[in-house]
Each structure stands twice: as structure tokens, then as C-alpha cells.
């Protein structure tokens, strides 16, 4: 039976879709059959980040409504084996996500895939609730910034009270913290919350720290998950985080400011 993983945050713009794309691709690269689902009904974007926006025929909502079969809506990634994308509808709204409909799709996916990555919309309304409801594990994507940390805490409360596991009194959803857009230089100057501060406040295990990186925008520009950019710090950090998720012991990197030579500083280059 496949594992359902939700990427959630409460706050928008912290990197849920970037992280969903990176994790799903990372699982598939390690040989695990994976599907990544866009739950942001009406504001489809995962397709752009995965670079399959020109190939969307049917979507998640068509499957829920019985207008298409699941395997017709799944888009096979052209670069990585074992990787599939289930895009959402661009024309309908969150009310199209019924609990029964989502459950039926999840049960079907569980039989075929090892990992089902759910890319949650921002907010705490129906779309976000449906994305986390069936989760076995949750990756809380957080920026080292006050509003993001507070919103993450709110989402942790939802996981503990309103998920399927909570409602049925099963073992609680496993929580992981993914700290994104981390800038060690600003942390050192005392301009940004450091990882210890965030961990102390949220009190959940740390899965990974993704450094602020120009590679993320470049990856979204060309529609290629940033984890495939293995020369970039962000790509390497995502790859480490996926390894840790799968139980490997990997030390955290990119948490200290990089020493920049005089030459690099003159040229104004950043990692």
C-alpha cells in the first residue's frame, strides 16, 4: 500500500509546489513509483513547475466526477521513470473536491504507487483540508519568517485534529519540518530566524534545510524540478532531504555562510 504525503504550510509562496515537485522527482529517481497531485483547484501550477503544462488533457476533478479514468488523467514524466503527475482543474473551484471523490482516487492510487505526494493549496479551507485529510505523513514547508512559522503551527493543529487519522483515532500523521529559503548569511547577521529558533517553536523533527538559491527560479522558468539541477545547492539539499525521508543518515548542509573569495565578491555572484 502506498504512502500518502502532504506538502503543506498554511502560508502561500513558501515553496510547497517547488518542494512537491522536488520530492516526487527525488522518490522516482531512487526507483520508487510516485505520483504528485495538485490540490489547488482553480489555480493550477504544478503542471508548469513539472514542465508538462502542454500535455494536460484530463484532470483530478474529471476523475472525481467520473468524466475520465484515472490512467487517462495521469501524465507520465518525460525525463524520469516511475514519475506521474495528476494535474488539477483550472476552471472549477474547491467545492469540486468531495471527501468521497478524493478518497476513491486515493484508494486507487495507493494500489499502484509507492508514494502519493499531495501538493496542498495555501490557506486552511477545503482544498488544504482535502490535501491533508488522507495523509500518512506531512511535510510542513516553512520559511524562517514570523508569519510562515505561525501559519505552520496552525496547520499542525489541523493535522492533529481534522485529518482522517485523527478522526479515526489511528496513529497520528508523521510530521516533518522542511525549512526553505534559508539564508545563512542573513542568519549570521541576526536578520533571520535560525533553524534552532524555528525548531524550538514548532517542536517537530527537521527533515531538511533548503538554502535560498537562484536555481529555484531558473528551474521554474524552464519547467524542470530543481532537484534535477544537481549542481545547485537547492537541488542537493532537496536530494539530501529525500534521502532522510527514506531513512538514510545524511548530515545537514548549507547552514553556514559560504566563504566567498575577493573575486566572487567583486563579481557579485551568489550560489
Amino acid at each position: 500500500m502506498g504512502q500518502i504525503i502532504v506538502m503543506t504550510s498554511g502560508k502561500g509562496g513558501v515553496g510547497k509546489t517547488t518542494s512537491s515537485a522536488a520530492f516526487a522527482t527525488g522518490f522516482a529517481l531512487r526507483g520508487h513509483k510516485t505520483v504528485v497531485i495538485d490540490f489547488d483547484v482553480g489555480l493550477r501550477n504544478l503542471d508548469l513547475i513539472m514542465g508538462c503544462e502542454r500535455r494536460v488533457v484530463f484532470d483530478f476533478i474529471n476523475v472525481i466526477n467520473g468524466e475520465a479514468k484515472l490512467n487517462q488523467a495521469l501524465i507520465k514524466d518525460k525525463r524520469v521513470d516511475n514519475l506521474y503527475i495528476l494535474p488539477t482543474s483550472q476552471t472549477r473551484d474547491k467545492d469540486a473536491l468531495t471527501k468521497e471523490g478524493v478518497e476513491a482516487v486515493m484508494e486507487e492510487l495507493r494500489k499502484e504507487f509507492e508514494f502519493i505526494v499531495c501538493d496542498s493549496p495555501a490557506g486552511i479551507e477545503k482544498g488544504a483540508l482535502m490535501a491533508l485529510y488522507f495523509a500518512d505523513q506531512a511535510v510542513i514547508v516553512t520559511n524562517p519568517e514570523v508569519s510562515s512559522v505561525r501559519d505552520s503551527d496552525r496547520v499542525l493543529g489541523m493535522l492533529a485534529a481534522r485529518s482522517r487519522r485523527a478522526e479515526l483515532g489511528l496513529e497520528p500523521v508523521t510530521e516533518h519540518l522542511l525549512l526553505t529559503r534559508y539564508d545563512p548569511n542573513r542568519v549570521e547577521r541576526g536578520e533571520m530566524l535560525n533553524v534552532e529558533d524555528v525548531l524550538e517553536i514548532l517542536a517537530i523533527p527537521l527533515l531538511g534545510i533548503i538554502p535560498e538559491s537562484q536555481a529555484v527560479l531558473r528551474a521554474s522558468n524552464i519547467g524542470q524540478p530543481v532537484i534535477l539541477d544537481d549542481g545547485s545547492s537547492a537541488g542537493q539539499a532537496y536530494s539530501d532531504a529525500v534521502g532522510r525521508f527514506l531513512g538514510e543518515q545524511i548530515e545537514h548542509r548549507f547552514t553556514k555562510p559560504q566563504k566567498r573569495g575577493l573575486f566572487a565578491r567583486l563579481l557579485g555572484r551568489t550560489a
Binding site: L48, E53, V57, N62, E67, Q90, T91, S220, N221, I222
Partner: peptide, 25 residues
């Protein structure tokens, strides 16, 4: 430049189909 091109293609289709129902199903 790639980002702009990708957006132009996908958004042209979305704008054209905004008022009409999804006919593919």
C-alpha cells in the same frame, strides 16, 4: 525567455477557453 514562451502558449489556450465548457470529456 523560456519562461515567457511557455506562459504565452499555455495562457493563450486558457484565455480562449475561459468562457466555453471543458469539451474534452
Amino acid at each position: 525567455h523560456q519562461a515567457k514562451e511557455r506562459l504565452q502558449i499555455v495562457m493563450a489556450h486558457e484565455r480562449a477557453n475561459r468562457e466555453s465548457p471543458d469539451y474534452l470529456p
